[in-house]
């Protein structure tokens, strides 16, 4: 199998400020929605995450969705969680995804099943996210399965991503956990949505102190908020997400809250771009994918490099 670097990896290595987006696969057996979003987004983002049954709700698989993205000319980042598959199924899916042309994988723990639509499900967590990262790396660099057995030919050679949440606790451990992920093999990092800029800057300070910004490409996560109600909901109900009161108030005061939400997101991107060690942004417009072009344009990130 020919060595084939992903576009995402190539652009990051070239030093481009990279933009990725996110597409939530549908709760149905149709791929046209994903293809449609891909067509819409591909001039504006360099790669697209496909979430893996996010919030533990059954959806079209992230790998299948990634194939639809490729069919529509986009670059997929397959999300892979440890919640639903053991090490046998995870490795099998890695082989399958690579054989179909997928080159980027993002390894996560996965949302707990109690948030989803199958709360009586048994979670797996045979591996945790860090052990999954190491597994993907060992398949590539050691040409070996998790058990140590050699992969005799055509090993999967993924560009490996991981997530970091600077807004969960314990705060100081978040940087150590990022370091563990990088040690295990993570090459690019996408962070949780950033609203509390001060805390993120502190996180980046600590990360830079440990030299982590030079060991992995850190992409800052952002999320446009449609209105003050949504901001308040996230503030109260979503663990691991910090939405400062200032943002809620700014939305409340705005005449056009949606436009203000977009403006806030654009300003955040501009601010993030100036933080040393931030190598790109990841835009999570949950169920609002169509706003991504406006944000990318507004943030002055066009045209995208090829």
């Amino acid at each position: 199998m020919a060595e084939e670097k992903s576009k995402l990896q190539r652009l990051l290595e070239q030093g481009e400020f990279v933009v990725s987006g996110e597409i939530g696969p549908p709760k149905s057996a149709a791929g046209d929605g994903v293809r449609h979003h891909t067509e819409e987004l591909k001039p504006y983002v360099d790669a697209m995450n496909l979430t893996d049954n996010q919030t533990a709700i059954v959806r079209l698989s992230s790998i299948a969705a990634g194939i639809h993205v490729m069919a529509a000319g986009g670059e997929p980042i397959i999300q892979m969680t440890c919640r639903d598959r053991n090490r046998i199924a995870l490795q099998s899916d890695l082989l399958g995804a690579y054989s179909l042309g997928v080159r980027n994988v993002l390894c996560l723990s996965g949302d707990h099943q109690s948030f989803g639509n199958h709360q009586a499900a048994k979670n797996v967590f045979d591996l945790d996210s860090i052990q999954l990262i190491k597994t993907v790396r060992d398949m590539r660099d050691k040409k070996a399965f998790h058990s140590g057995e050699a992969i005799k030919k055509d090993e999967p050679r993924f560009f490996i991503g991981a997530v970091a949440n600077p807004f969960a606790d314990p705060f100081e451990f978040r940087v150590l956990r990022l370091e563990k992920k990088i040690r295990a093999g993570a090459q690019f990092i996408q962070t949780q949505c950033i609203f509390d800029m001060e805390r993120f800057e502190k996180f980046m300070d600590l990360a830079r102190n440990r030299g982590l910004h030079e060991q992995a490409y850190i992409m800052a996560g952002v999320m446009p908020i449609k209105n003050a109600k949504v901001a308040k909901y996230m503030q109260k109900n979503v663990s691991g997400m910090l939405v400062p009161d200032g943002i809620v108030e700014r939305l409340q005061k705005a005449e056009d809250q949606t436009a203000e939400g977009v403006q806030i997101c654009i300003e955040q991107i501009q601010q993030l771009k100036s933080i040393p060690g931030v190598r790109g942004v990841h835009i999570m417009a949950v169920a609002w994918e169509e706003i991504i072009p406006t944000i990318v344009k507004g943030a002055g990130l066009l045209p995208r490099p090829q």
Binding site: R83, H112, F125, D128, I130, R177, K180, G240
Partner: peptide
Amino acid sequence: AKSLLNGPCGGSQNGKCE
């Protein structure tokens, strides 16, 4: 709740599990 062996997931806040 996830039997994680390498540190807390992103749902840990103010000392509580999500």
